Computed example of a mutant assay.
Amino acid sequence: MQSHTHDLQFTGAEVRKRFVSWADGEADREWLCLELIQRHAPGIAPRPLRRESEDGHPVVIMERLPGDPLGGTALTSAQTASLGRTLRSLYDIPAEAVTAAGIAERRHGPSTLPGALGGWLSEGRDLSPCRDAALVADSVDAAREWLSRADGMPIPRLTGLGISDLNPANIMWDGRACRLVDFEDGGLTDPAYDLADHVEHLAGRLAGVFDPDALSVAVGLSADDRERMHAYRPLWAAFWLVMLLPGNGGFSRNPSGTTEAQANHFLKLIS
């Protein structure tokens, strides 16, 4: 089983995660996050077992979790409640412990994503391969304008640990509990920001996996943080819009019309 950053090997009770390179620090983040979770919230993620090097590639060996990955259909109420408890346990790992463990802000965190996204949105692109190039161009312009407004997003509150990538395939369900895998991009985060990322993840949103309101309540977000989560959602919708533009991998991997659907979704969020 392979991805662009790593490949996985399942051997009995263990999973070997072999990373493509050392360059982006994914193996270090994975290991440090799993160690920290084991100390503060054991049972919600794989137990880290050992680290190795294989043919010059970093390898993290971890416990193999029971259950099957979620995805494809909406979560049941029991799954939503369990996922909420799991995420709450993750977010309750205090920022002081995260930084003391040598873990920095999550990848595409609130201090870096807006600037990076502004640059991506400003790149000149040929939109002619799109089914509705005019709609996509209008949505890109709207995203650029929304991002430029100083009041477009809340001030981040970096209070705990986040997973960063909540593709439903990274949620293991054994019939009773949800556990999380894939912490290579994890780090210090704002729970409202993270949940906005999770509910806007393309793999989950297109399949209707997450109910944003139900999940935010299950996590225990305050009314203020639920408002902040809603305010962050256009940022992540714009991120996926960019990922689905011609020239990016998401455009070729998804069916024709997905970019237009994402454009409409973004415009609806900011309307």
Rank of each mutant, 00 (worst) to 15 (best):
M1G: 01
Q2C: 03
H4P: 03
F10I: 12
F10L: 15
F10E: 14
G12W: 09
A13R: 15
A13H: 14
F19L: 09
D24A: 03
D28A: 15
R29I: 12
W31Y: 08
C33N: 10
E35D: 07
Q38G: 14
A41I: 05
A41Y: 00
P42C: 02
P42N: 06
P42Y: 02
R47M: 05
P48D: 05
R50Q: 13
E54M: 07
D55A: 14
D55V: 10
G56E: 12
G56H: 00
I61A: 09
M62F: 03
L65R: 12
P66A: 01
D68H: 09
D68S: 15
T73W: 13
L75D: 01
T76C: 06
S77M: 01
T80P: 04
S82W: 03
T86C: 15
L87Q: 07
R88G: 10
L90P: 06
L90H: 14
P94K: 08
A95L: 15
T99F: 02
A100H: 00
E105Q: 14
R107Q: 10
G109T: 09
G109E: 04
P110N: 00
G115D: 14
A116Q: 01
L117M: 02
G119F: 06
W120P: 02
E123K: 12
G124P: 11
G124H: 05
D126N: 12
S128M: 04
P129F: 02
R131E: 15
A133D: 07
A134N: 12
A134H: 08
L135P: 14
S139T: 08
S139A: 15
D141R: 15
E145K: 07
S148H: 12
A150H: 13
D151C: 03
D151G: 06
G152F: 00
M153L: 13
P156I: 02
R157F: 00
G160T: 11
L161D: 13
S164A: 12
D165M: 13
A169M: 15
A169P: 01
I171A: 05
I171F: 04
G175N: 11
R176S: 14
A177C: 07
R179K: 03
V181Y: 08
V181N: 04
D182I: 05
F183Q: 01
D185G: 09
L188W: 11
T189D: 08
D190N: 04
P191N: 11
A192W: 04
L195K: 11
L195P: 02
A196V: 03
A196G: 03
A196Y: 06
L202H: 09
A203L: 14
A203Q: 07
A207T: 00
V209E: 10
F210P: 02
F210Q: 00
D213V: 08
V217H: 07
V217I: 05
S222R: 09
S222A: 12
D225L: 07
D225G: 11
R226K: 09
H230N: 08
W236P: 05
A238I: 13
A238Y: 01
F239S: 02
F239E: 01
L241I: 11
M243G: 08
M243Y: 07
G247R: 02
N248F: 03
G250I: 08
N254D: 11
P255M: 10
P255A: 11
S256W: 03
G257Q: 05
T258R: 05
T258S: 14
A261E: 10
Q262I: 01
Q262S: 10
L267F: 04
L269W: 00
